[in-house]
Nucleic acid binder design. Structure first.
Lengths: 290, 290
DNA sequence: ACAATTGTGAAAATAATATCACAGACGACA
DNA sequence: TGTCGTCTGTGATATTATTTTCACAATTGT
């Protein structure tokens, strides 16, 4: 509403005129290396600004804090808010709903997950994974578990259009050993394994690994044990205000990968898509209009 | 290994495998609000990560620091270095990647989709839909199409735990007429239909509607023709830099709804979940830890 | 049943903060 | 130039907060 919270930096600048010489000197020193210097011990800050300890103590009180620790706590909070970035402010989207509404709380959490996930992903690894998945000379097996087989299938449905030799395997079914006997060294397994890691998935990964296959793993921040066998692990943060974990972030990664793979050989993808169009036309699966 | 300055974040990630469960939990907590959380008092950090004080003390030593203060000093130094460096501005999600990287472009688009979607959703409608879906006195049919059946199944798998009488129907299979004959007035159809609207789905909706069933529709911004029969339509924006549309936003809505429904009768959900736990224990489907 | 991990509660050691009194420095002003 | 009031630093001390460590019990996976 009224006062969007003022940064400490602002508050200091504002008070600047009301400060005395030594205090101003201190203030400038704080702003110079903001906010790191304010987060150290009081004595260090004093020394860095070439002022005395009591000067620091006196100033933070002048700024309206109960003490130096209070001041630091505020600084830390601000630092946390900065890191969260501008999008996290859901004033941006909270249309009609109050911010306590589950839609907003949930979305907040998901955006947070996305931000954290992206911050910890190595783009080179992502590209390497995409290249593996795109390589038509390798047979591609996509493996999902009890819940994650939905993501696996989503990936499968799209890759199927982009390239040949793609197989969807459900680790919870008992048919998967059949697929494994065909796996050759150099083939690629895309494995989904998130919390409530599944024994079947692990076994499958072990066998695939033993046969010399490459493994690309989609997992969560706690990392499935499969990651020890994986050539590349892509981890998502999946915490939401719910009894279950969120698959949205993983979905985002999957779609990004689809997009990346499709770009790697767009000409061929386009051709395949057009062929598929024709077939769909013939089956009248889709509506032509409205 | 030339040790060009390694960030603490890197160092933690690197050691991640050598860490134990509680330590990993702590590490993730540090990374989650990095670096702010590491700059507070040790006890606060421990509490925030839900681990004990000694665990924190043990871990910082494992990371090679003399003590927590030592660790903090390093964090502050790093923070100072960042601030000094090239004006690190945001809008790139994957910090390490250039903003043209597909990960960043895709995520930008998705965040945009989310924001737009939320802005246009009426929370009252969402709540009404949740209530319909949660009502155990109505049989619930969940319907998906060629691609969207993955979302449908995702919803199905979770609702199955929350309530009885849930059925997953694939509109592309030719078995769905069998389900329809059982449908009673007041039963609820949750229908997914996004671009490349499917004829089968429309027909199914028409029949369901004719039998007096309620329809909750998940669709995209262009709205499936099913919306004319739907009691409640939830529309997502689905544009991304890809040859295909994005399901991520729809997934977000689905998960939000799962969370909302579960909350409506949490006691019963909890009981059902516990029963399920037991069964899983017996089947040894899941690993207990690590 | 065993080994490893983790939490508990407590105590001791350390570090940091908050204050105080006082003296020197400085500028304002007569 | 001298006086005054304000500001500042010094050094010391009391107080509080934080870290560090310990032994032991509980838990968990193997």
């Amino acid at each position: 509403m009224t006062d969007a919270k003022q940064t400490i930096s602002d508050r200091i600048q504002e008070q600047m005129d009301a400060l005395t010489r030594a205090e101003r000197q201190l203030a400038l020193s704080i702003l110079e290396n903001y906010p790191a210097s304010g987060l150290g011990p009081l004595a260090a800050l004093a020394k860095g600004a070439h002022v005395s300890v009591p000067t620091v103590a006196r100033m933070v009180q002048k700024l309206g804090y109960k003490g130096y620790s209070d001041f630091q706590a505020d600084l830390r909070e601000e630092l946390g808010a900065i890191a969260k970035g501008p999008i996290a402010k859901h004033e941006t989207w909270a249309g009609a709903a109050p911010s306590e509404h589950i839609l907003n709380r949930f979305t907040d959490a998901v955006i947070d997950n996305i931000r954290n996930t992206l911050a910890h992903i190595d783009p080179a690894e992502f590209d390497a994974a995409s290249a593996l998945v795109a390589d038509p000379s390798r047979h591609l097996y996509i493996v999902g578990g009890r819940i994650t087989h939905t993501l696996a299938e989503y990936l499968f449905l799209h890759l199927q259009v982009i390239r040949p030799h793609v197989t969807h395997v459900q680790s919870t079914s008992n048919t998967w050993p059949h697929y494994l006997v065909n796996a050759k060294p150099g083939d690629v397994f895309v494995i989904f394994d998130v919390r409530r890691y599944e024994n079947n998935t692990l076994k499958l990964a072990e066998l695939a690994n033993a046969r010399g296959a490459k493994i690309v793993l989609f997992t969560d921040q706690w990392r499935s044990p499969v990651h020890r066998m994986a050539d590349i692990s892509l981890t998502s943060q999946i915490i939401v205000p719910s009894a279950w974990d969120s698959a949205t972030t993983t979905m985002l990664l999957v779609e990004s990968m689809i997009s990346a793979v499709q770009t790697l050989d767009w000409e061929k993808t386009k051709d395949r898509m057009e062929e598929l169009e024709d077939i769909f036309d013939q089956t009248r699966l889709f509506r032509k209009f409205t």
